[in-house]
Structures are given as structure tokens and as C-alpha cells.
Amino acid sequence: MNTTAPEPEAADGGGPLEGAVVAVAGAGGPAGHATLLRLAQAGATVVAADADPQRLAEGVDAARFAHGGATVIGDTVDLLDPGATREWAAKTEKDFGRVDGLVHLVGGWRGSTSFATTDLADWDLLHDLLIRTVQHTSLAFEGPLARSGNGRYVLISAAGASLPTAGNAAYAAAKAAAEAWTLALADGFRKSGPAGHPPAAATVLIVKALVSDAMRQARPDAAFPGFTDVHDLAEEIRRLWDRPAAEMNGTRLWLTPRP
């Protein structure tokens, strides 16, 4: 697995996403930073959003440096506000003329020591972070992604949604709901285009958990078995445009062994 970020790429190097416009929701964390970096290196115009302006700015600045001349911008957006999310989608399409991707990286975790000790306040929090933000971004970006003719809506999910454990009831249920919502979006794309030719694809990438360089530095003796490195995740996201939308739409791609 990769443990370091890719080297900076020259401004005139081009890339497989040259000309594409990709929005990244929840871009302030390690996975967001890695994704901004990889998309910029692939030539995309990247429009990032996060609720934390400082972490967002750090990721935007790093992605700009990594690909000289790349257009990478950051917007502080409250994705729990449906109006603000729709405004973000509309502004992105207006400013750049198209939206070819929405990568949903908003995350969060809460758990308990047993099923009986589950705190439903955890469900309330995870419902907002893991489901409501998916609802708002998918509804806001469905039109722009379809109009692009080759759009991608990308959800990052967890293996626990397929095999819930007693202490992760709220988290697993929220992830499963987010997956179901995304697959419903995929069905909408399927029905909106000519037979076998959806105008966009909604895809779920499934990990056990994510690991970053900072996590390895903090726990140098830890093995992180089955975890997906954030740079590997970013590369898998980039590859989603390598295949036709019809092949990617409604798929659940496992980046960790299936339980």
C-alpha cells in the first residue's frame, strides 16, 4: 500500500481527467486531502467543500502545489442545510459549465461496548453525518451530473454495513441506509437515459476503515489489517472515470476482503 503522497506533477502534464470538474464533499480530512491531490494531478478542476475552513484550506493548498496550475477551490458549505448544498451545486455548474463528479467523503463514527449500551444520541449524530448529507448532496447534484453526460456520484461506505456488529448498530445502520440511498440514485440514472446508457453513475466504494500517514506515525507498531490507505482510496476514486458509466452505475466495489 502507498504510505506517501504522489510526487508533484508538471502543469503541462495533462491527465485522464483533464477538463473534468469534480466536487468533493467532506474534503477536510485525510481522505479528502488525498482525493483533492489525486484529482488535481489527474487534471480535474476540483471544487472542495467542508465545514472546517482551516482543514479545507490545508487540503486545497496542498493539491494546488501538487499540480502546478491546477484549479482547486474550497467552499465552506453546511451540507446539513439543503438550500446551501443546492446553492453550492448550482454555483459550481454555473462557474465551470459542468459537474462531472461528486465524491462524498463526509464521515463520522460512534460505537458502544455492547448492543444493550447503544446510545441513540449516537444514531442522531450519525444520521445527520452519514445519511442526511448524502441525501442533500445527491439531490443537489443529480441534475448537474446527469447533464455532464458522464457524471459520477461516489459514496465511501464501510464493510460493517454488510455485517453489523453489536457495538456498531448505529454506525452500520447509517452506512447501510446511505448505500441504499445511493443505489436508488443509480436506479434513477438508469431510468433517465436510453436503455443501457445512463447519463451518470452512482457507485459505492467499500472499505473496512481508512488509514493515513498521520495514523501510522502515531501508532508505528500497528498493522492496520484490512485498512485502505487514503492515497489508494483516492486512486480508486480517480479510476471510476476509466470505465463507461453503464459499467459503474449501481455497483458496490470492495476495497477490502468481503466479510
Rank of each mutant, 00 (worst) to 15 (best):
A20E: 11
D242T: 09
D119P: 03
L79E: 06
G188L: 05
P30W: 06
G69F: 09
E9V: 10
G111K: 06
R147Q: 12
W241V: 03
A202W: 02
E179D: 13
V24L: 06
K94R: 15
L139T: 14
W123F: 13
F96D: 04
A169Y: 08
T92E: 05
K175L: 08
G101E: 10
D81L: 02
D52K: 15
K191Y: 00
R132Y: 11
D229G: 13
G167V: 02
P16F: 12
R152K: 10
A121W: 03
V134G: 09
L163Q: 09
A10D: 02
D221Y: 00
R243E: 05
L125A: 14
L139P: 10
V230R: 01
H197G: 09
V24H: 12
G13T: 11
M248Q: 10
W181T: 09
V106L: 10
D122C: 09
L233A: 05
A90G: 10
G167W: 02
L185I: 06
E87P: 04
L139H: 13
L163A: 14
D75A: 15
E9W: 04
A159N: 02
N168E: 05
T256A: 10
P144C: 10
W181Q: 12
R98F: 05
S157H: 06
A116D: 08
T182K: 05
P16S: 15
L17G: 12
A202Q: 11
Q54L: 02
G28I: 02
Q135C: 09
M248W: 01
T251I: 12
S112H: 12
A174E: 01
G193L: 03
R243Y: 00
A201N: 05
F115Y: 03
G43A: 13
P198Y: 07
D50M: 07
G108D: 14
R132W: 09
A11H: 08
T203I: 12
H127E: 15
D242Q: 11
F115C: 04
K91R: 14
R98K: 13
P16T: 13
V46F: 06
S157V: 08
G19D: 07
P220D: 10
L17P: 10
V99L: 14
G149N: 09
G68E: 15
D119N: 08
G32C: 07
R239I: 04
P225M: 02
E179C: 01
V72W: 07
F65E: 15
T256V: 01
T165W: 01
A23E: 12
F65Y: 14
A27V: 05
K175A: 06
E142N: 12
G188E: 11
G149R: 11
L240C: 03
A166P: 02
L120A: 11
G15E: 10
P194Y: 03
R152A: 03
A201S: 09
G101K: 06
R147P: 14
F189C: 07
I156A: 05
S157R: 05
P6R: 06
R64V: 00
A20Y: 00
R239T: 04
A66F: 00
L120S: 11
D95L: 09
E87W: 04
M248P: 08
V24K: 11
T71P: 00
A174Y: 00
